[in-house]
Design a protein around this nucleic acid. Structure first.
Length: 206
DNA sequence: TATTCGATGTGCT
DNA sequence: GCACATCGAATAC
């Protein structure tokens, strides 16, 4: 378990788009007791409070979004559509209101545990290829709201054990009605553990 | 294979 | 009340 080390705070204290892209290929480490689940991030979206009407932080601080205005590296989990959770990491400095939504990942360690959390699935790609699926597989819910992902806690982000080369594809974001034209969705090219969507074919930069 | 639609609870108006 | 950063089953083709 000590093979994983949290990325430092300063990683998150940067431009949200930069952090979104650089989170690709990093590893989510989820610990619960002696068990460990890890998954390599394959898809992210940027939400930027200042100019982005799709962001929960576009208007003002509320009980739900307040952690987005705290310092980069904290975990923002929100509940959506009556059933699901989504996992985000706050970026930038205190007061800015930015976050990166982790939309998909590639299971590494603990796949049996993930299957148990997910229930019946037909194939392994369905385990984590969507923001709510990822949360189910990693047993992430609002209890983790405000956790520090730059500390060695129950959930954090680490460098991968071995770096693999990949290309990044940029598209518009998925599943939103406002601010849909911003090219703020990023995923690893040709990786099967990515949300299936027609935007995958309408990529914006190579 | 592509598209539609219901389930579901919380936060904000 | 209603909209919602979704999923998965059902329907249409």
């Amino acid at each position: 378990m000590n093979k994983y080390k949290p990325l430092p705070r300063k990683f998150y204290l940067r431009d949200t788009v930069t952090v979104s892209k650089e989170l690709l290929g990093k590893v989510i480490v989820r610990t619960a007791g002696s068990k460990i689940i890890t998954a390599r991030i394959t898809e992210t979206e940027a939400y930027i409070g200042e100019h982005d009407p799709a962001s929960h932080s576009y208007k003002k601080i509320t009980e739900r979004n307040k952690v987005m205005y705290d310092k980069g590296g904290l975990v923002y989990v929100y509940f959506i559509y009556g059933n699901y959770n989504c996992f985000n990491i706050v970026t930038g400095k205190k007061g800015e209101g930015n976050a990166v939504l982790i939309r998909a990942a590639e299971p590494q360690e603990g796949t049996e545990a993930m299957k148990k959390f997910r229930g019946k699935i037909k194939n392994i790609h369905e385990l984590t290829n969507g923001p709510a699926k990822l949360c189910m597989a990693l047993n992430i819910d609002r209890k983790l709201y405000g956790e520090d992902a730059s500390k060695n806690g129950s959930v954090f982000i680490s460098e991968p054990l071995k770096n693999e080369k990949f290309e990044i594809v940029t598209t518009k974001r998925i599943g939103i009605t406002e601010g849909r034209d911003f090219p703020y969705r990023f995923f690893i090219k040709d990786n099967p553990f990515v949300t299936k969507h027609k935007f995958n074919r309408e990529k914006i930069y190579n």
